[in-house]
Design a protein around this nucleic acid. Structure first.
Lengths: 189, 189
DNA sequence: ATATTATATATCAATCTGATACATATGTAA
DNA sequence: TTACATATGTATCAGATTGATATATAATAT
């Protein structure tokens, strides 16, 4: 592990923008980072503790009524750590698509099954594309307000271009697979 | 964990085509599955032992000279297990792109750094695209020989379409970022 | 002859996921 | 108003995975 775990930097990156609780960090990751990076509570909360021990973040405990709330703020040392990581070369870009796995091994079952997987994939991508296009539009309106917005926009356009390519592929893949399914007299819907 | 770990099915899927050693399984995954699925020895060897205990695969030990060689063959029960999994819906398709992470948080450093990450990404994709196009061509020549070849071809065309979209995006992203970098008087190469 | 690469199996600390547990707050429908 | 569902919030853990490392032999190149 050349430059320690990525989770450290994702959290530092989010906190560099504004102070947040672990719960809010998770929400951010699910919404804006969601399509190219994921994390679970099981990695967020322990990492926040570690970052606090390293003094890369500080903790502000609030208690309004009964519910406790732990808000974390990045320190100057934390920002330095983030910047050092940004300078390091990218170690790994990884795809892990179960849909492609089921397509790859699809000759071990009916083509109608594989077709269903592709159709579900297509629908999921179509829905996510709507979300990304909405994000693109709202980011374009606030582009001049903050430097970071261009960075956010570029990740969103990456998603849009990619998802559009997926959808084009889906049509082609469905055609070729359903043609074979018909030829073999297998059931398709 | 609704339908147990994926590694089981990846190995069963590969063994459904032909008997192999753990080392060969790893090589296959690095070459043909590599762009949408990865695995390390640390998950392959233990999984092979588990599959053997479950009687989904059988072991043939060979010893030519000093080096031992453990070849695994799928059983009818193993094939049934694979087919059952192929029928189950896809649980998760996941992207994990560190390049996008560094782009997203790029406003915390010089744009020239982010530009370098995108340029390296572009180069990597360009090289992988050459490999995929070669695979596409050789699969098209043997398409009629085996049913599975269409399945393999479709995963390859997925990669090609996706990577082409990435490259288009790279040009656009570099333009927008370098324009800003110039505007701010920052160093770019 | 020597060094490097390829074949081959195996383990392990560090890490991460998915599930679960717990507790409070807020909205909403009966 | 009572009950139910959803949202906010922290935390842990078994099981799965990675990346590194160790070990050994075979083949190929220098």
């Amino acid at each position: 592990m050349a430059n320690s775990k990525k989770m450290d930097f994702v959290i530092l990156g989010l906190l560099a923008h504004e102070s947040m609780t672990g719960y809010e960090i998770k929400k951010r990751m699910d919404t804006i980072l969601g399509f190219f990076w994921n994390a679970s509570y099981g990695s967020i909360y322990p990492t926040l503790n570690e970052l606090q021990n390293k003094q890369y973040v500080t903790l502000q405990e609030e208690k309004d009524g009964g519910r406790e709330k732990k808000s974390y703020t990045i320190t100057p040392e934390g920002k330095e750590c983030l910047e050092r990581w940004l300078h390091l070369p990218v170690e790994k870009d990884e795809l892990r698509y179960e849909t492609l796995l089921k397509l790859f091994f699809g000759s071990n079952t009916d083509d109608s099954i594989t077709l269903q997987h592709i159709e579900k994939f297509e629908e999921k991508i179509r829905n996510q594309l709507v979300v990304l296009i909405a994000m693109e539009s709202s980011l374009q309106h606030v582009l001049s307000e903050e430097d970071a917005h261009l960075n956010y926009l570029l990740t969103v356009t990456f998603g849009i271009k990619t998802y559009e390519a997926y959808l084009t592929w889906c049509i082609q893949a469905k055609n070729l697979l359903s043609k074979r399914a018909q030829g073999n007299g297998k059931v398709i819907n």
